[in-house]
Structures are given as C-alpha cells and as structure tokens.
Design a binder for these strands. Structure first.
Length: 291
DNA sequence: ACCGCACCCTGAGCGC
DNA sequence: TGCGCTCAGGGTGCGG
C-alpha cells in the first residue's frame, strides 16, 4: 500500500499522538511473521518508555525511545497506523464502509487484524496498528543494536540524484523500473511513483538500466523528487485502501498520469496507456511518449 | 553478483 | 448465490 509519501503523511500525523508520551501498556495478537520481535517481548520491553522522536527511513517509521532503543514499523501493503480517536468508517473501502452498522461507523473497535495497540500514560488517544495482509513489520531494537533492514537502505528517495542512479545502473541488465524499486538503490519509491516518474521523464519502465543515459538519469531523479514532494503536499495517494491516520483521503490519485489508467488516453498524446508486468509488478506507460 | 521467481497473507472484483 | 480466478501501493530468500 504505502510508499514514501503515504508513510511521511502517516508519520506527520502519528507523531502528534506519540512523541513526548510514555508508553503504559501494549496489546498484541498472536505471534506471526508480522512480529520480527516476538509479541510477548514487545509487551515486556515497551511499557515505561517515552517516545522521543518519530523518524522516517524510506518506507520505515522509526520511533526513538527514551533508553536509546528503537521501534521499527513498516506498513507493508495494507498496514494502517491510526489513533483510537479515528472513526472506523474512514478506515475501510467505501463498499465495506456502507455495510457497517451506524454504531460501528462511529468508533473503531480493534478487530482480528489489529495486531498492535499502544496505550499511553495520561489522557489522549492510543495508537493502533492494523494490517489485514500482515505484510507489515514491527521490530524492537535495543540501544546500539544494528538493524540490517535499515542498513540495507540506499539514499532516501527525496535525495536521489542522477549521478547516484547512473552509477547504480552500471552493468545492470534489469529494467530501470526495477532499479527505482530496489530499496538498496534508493529508499521509498514503490510501484505508483516509479511509473509516474518514468512517465514524466519519458523513459520506458522496461528499458535495461545500463541503457539509460546519464542525462536521462538526471531527468528521472528530478521527477522522482518532484513527484514524491508533490504527493506529500497532497497527503499521498488513496487508490485502493490507503487512508491517512486521521481518516482523510490523499489527493495525489487525482494527479497521477499513468498508474492504474490502463486503456485511458495518455494525458500528453492520447495514445491508450499500456500495462505490462515488469519484475513481477504491473507497470503502466505510454508507448509513444516513453522511449 | 546478478536475476527471476516463489512465497508470505487476506479481500475485492469479475466472469460464469 | 457461489465458485474460481486474478489482482493488489510490500519485501525476503532461494536456486540457477
């Protein structure tokens, strides 16, 4: 589900209910691969900790805790972080929404997909982490403990440069789009923004990375930054089920050019947008505008 | 080192 | 109404 702009939007909203507060209790579901740290350990380690900061690294959220330990959160495809003040009606698709009883529409009640609940001391809302597909992740790192997940990440996508991309592309036969999705090259881009940036740059997603010129790399990097920044301004993309923690929809889906627009006219030349699988991900592009 | 693929889950939407 | 199929914005790990 969420890429850099959605994670950043989530961070800005969740920060308000986490930072400066002390964790009082933690509730979890049963152990599953969602929990990189066993849930019983989370319930033991987290209470008493104050949240000092909430940072973002690529698509990860990193909460810095009072004793120097850290809590890593990754939303995967369907992860949702939200406050216990949020109304359930805003957490579901419009069809699912309509089938809810009026009572259920007023306030969210933790369900079997709500894998983590953090209760804070004092007044103010709790934090819920709900994830239907369980592709999300929770991990607790002790003070000074290294995280191979974070260490693997390349430069944050907002700081991608043509030079970095060009160097990474050397001798790589994979598609340029696969390079953009590779979190060790740059962190934060996902399927939507890879397609959008490549459309704006006029480069076909399937082109072999080593065949992309230096100046095209500059253009791609420029549009990657531009598309991500603009999406953050609009609150991210709400295409299938992403909604911000406060329940509002993002706005970027209305500005996208090619993603999930198969068959629709290209906004530039009116040629129907083509869809093709590249690196196991559906890719959308214009045959005429993208070389 | 690189590359393609299977896999981890659940739910929505579609054709029949 | 139900069945079977495809698809989904994530990432990891394996074998060739």
């Amino acid at each position: 589900m969420p890429e850099l702009p959605e994670v950043e939007t989530t961070r800005r909203q969740i920060e308000k209910i986490m930072v400066g507060r002390r964790i009082e209790a933690v509730e979890t579901t049963r152990p599953s691969y969602f929990f990189l740290t066993p849930p019983e350990e989370l319930r033991r380690r987290l209470p008493g900790q104050r949240v000092d900061r909430l940072d973002r690294a690529g698509k990860y959220l990193v909460a810095a805790l009072g004793d120097g330990s850290r809590l890593l959160l990754h939303l995967g495809m369907t992860g949702q972080l939200f406050s216990s003040d949020a109304a359930s009606v805003r957490l579901l698709s419009s069809t699912a929404r309509a089938s809810l009883s009026p009572e259920a529409q007023i306030r969210f009640k933790p369900d079997e997909h709500t894998h983590l609940r953090i209760r804070f001391a004092g007044s103010g809302p709790d934090l819920f982490f709900r994830d239907v597909r369980k592709f999300g992740k929770v991990e607790w790192l002790a003070h000074g403990e290294k995280s191979e997940r974070l260490d693997r990440l390349g430069i944050d996508a907002l700081g991608l440069t043509g030079e970095l991309l060009f160097r990474a592309n050397r001798a790589r036969r994979v598609a340029i789009k696969s390079m953009l999705l590779d979190q060790s090259v740059c962190a934060g881009i996902g399927n939507i923004y890879a397609d959008e940036a490549l459309f704006l740059a006029g480069v076909r997603p399937g082109r072999a990375a080593k065949r992309v010129t230096r100046s095209e790399c500059e253009t791609i990097a420029k549009f990657v930054r531009q598309v991500l920044e603009r999406s953050i301004e609009t609150g991210g993309s709400s295409i299938s089920d992403y909604v911000a923690p406060d329940g509002s929809d993002g706005g970027y889906q209305d500005e996208r050019h090619v993603y999930a627009r198969t068959g629709e006219p290209c906004p530039r030349c009116a040629t129907p947008i083509k869809r093709k699988m590249i690196g196991q991900r559906s890719s959308h592009y214009c045959l005429r505008c993208q070389k």
